[in-house]
């Protein structure tokens, strides 16, 4: 699997549309490997698609047995703004929270289901002085599964989205194809669609390196500036490892004195 990941990353990038202006791109579908109360995961990584790239961060905490909260932040950009008014560029971001449940099965598998809400915005400059700035909200339901061994792990999840573009400021001077794409997005919003995410990683507790591919399944959206896929690499820390270790090392008499 590990040998195939670079190939999969390349395929994902090639699958992406050639369009250089995007109005949506899938962030990574987080599939935390949760086993017990107080399990805590945090990850940060690089993510990109065709002609855009950025970073994302995620954190997950289990406050109760079988229950967890999830936080995601995703931020990408296409080219960089500069003083040249003819420069095309764009950027987008998304921040979301989710509540969910998990069920550890055997010693090395965890099933999860998260429901979440978030919002973000996507800005594009078209190189002719025209810009667009769209704001959206996303509600999602995401079942997932993670299998983790001593040195490697694999996960898969699907995300059912309700994506609503709540507002936008759009310059009429932008290229007609882009204007049509935005009008189409406005007309069909809220948009229901699903995404599929795969993760494969290696490492050992408490640090894992993960490779991710996220695919947007709704083909009809691809011509409206929806990126077909993203791919990323991230590093994840099992933070509970540190405080559990601290707790384990605490002198016994400290309990006795309480």
């Amino acid at each position: 699997m590990r040998q195939n990941l670079p190939l999969l990353l390349c395929i994902a990038l090639c699958l992406s549309s050639a369009c250089s202006h995007y109005y949506y791109a899938p962030n990574s579908l987080q599939t935390p490997y949760l086993q017990q109360k107080h399990d805590t995961r945090a990850s940060i990584g690089f993510i990109g698609g065709n002609e855009f790239s950025g970073w994302e961060a995620s954190a997950c905490f289990s406050p109760v047995k079988y229950g967890a909260v999830l936080f995601n932040h995703f931020q990408v950009q296409h080219a960089k703004p500069d003083d040249n008014p003819e420069r095309k560029y764009g950027n987008g971001r998304l921040t979301e929270f989710a509540l969910g449940a998990y069920n550890p099965i055997k010693k090395n598998m965890s099933l999860s289901l998260f429901a979440g809400w978030g919002g973000g915005q996507v800005f594009n400059a078209y190189g002719n002085g025209g810009v667009s700035n769209l704001r959206f909200e996303r509600i999602f339901l995401q079942p997932g599964m993670m299998i983790q061994g001593k040195r490697a792990r694999f996960g898969v999840a699907t995300r059912f989205n309700r994506l609503n573009y709540v507002s936008g400021e759009v310059d009429l001077g932008i290229p007609p194809t882009e204007l049509n794409a935005i009008r189409s997005i406005e007309n069909v919003s809220p948009i229901y669609f699903s995404e599929l995410g795969f993760v494969g990683g290696f490492g050992a507790a408490p640090v894992w390196v993960d490779f991710r591919i996220n695919l947007n399944n709704k083909e009809s959206l691809h011509s409206s500036g929806f990126a077909t896929s993203t791919a990323g690499i991230s590093i994840q820390f099992e933070l509970d490892y540190f405080w559990r270790k601290t707790e384990a090392n605490r002198p016994m008499n400290s309990f006795n004195t309480e």
Partner: peptide, 16 residues
């Protein structure tokens, strides 16, 4: 979340 999903909120797009 389900209730929010059921509501069709009006979008507010300004073209200028």
């Amino acid at each position: 979340l389900i209730l929010a999903a059921a509501c069709k909120r009006d979008t507010d797009f300004n073209y200028y």
